[in-house]
Design a protein around this nucleic acid. Structure first.
Length: 119
DNA sequence: GGTGTGACAACAA
DNA sequence: TTTGTTGCCACAC
């Protein structure tokens, strides 16, 4: 069977495809994305890539935060305000530049991964 | 091939 | 909770 993501975004880097799997209303950490993308230990690469996402493609960069729940951008910065707004729109509570991973952290089921990630 | 750099992570105080 | 330190690894010089 042809995987949906692969069929529609064949040239997209695994990291970005993985980011697109994070559902609205949830957040994931850089390390988690790296792991799921098959690149354990490369959380920093995830950040680097998100900073270079070409315009026009729909990647929910704002759902990716640090493993401790903090937003990666400095509090009060324009980026963090934007990120906060986008998350709040989805129902994710952002308090003092941080999110409760306990409540909003993404925990994909094995079947989700098997169906959506095809590589 | 050494050195510095990241939208990080884990851990210690 | 906040700050510092160390580990991490691909990349660009």
């Amino acid at each position: 069977m042809v995987n949906k993501q692969t069929a529609e975004k064949p040239d997209l880097h695994p990291i970005l495809r993985t980011v697109m799997l994070v559902p609205a209303g949830n957040v994931a950490s850089y390390g988690q994305i790296a792991d799921l993308a098959g690149l354990p230990g490369r959380a920093r690469l995830v950040g680097k890539m998100l900073g270079q996402v070409p315009e026009g493609i729909n990647v929910p960069w704002y759902r990716i935060i640090r493993s401790n729940g903090q937003l990666a951008f400095p509090p009060g910065s324009r980026h963090s305000e934007l990120q906060t707004g986008l998350l709040q729109q989805e129902g994710v509570a952002v308090i003092r530049n941080r999110v409760k991973m306990r409540d909003f952290g993404w925990q994909p089921s094995l079947t989700t991964l098997l169906f959506e990630l095809d590589y």
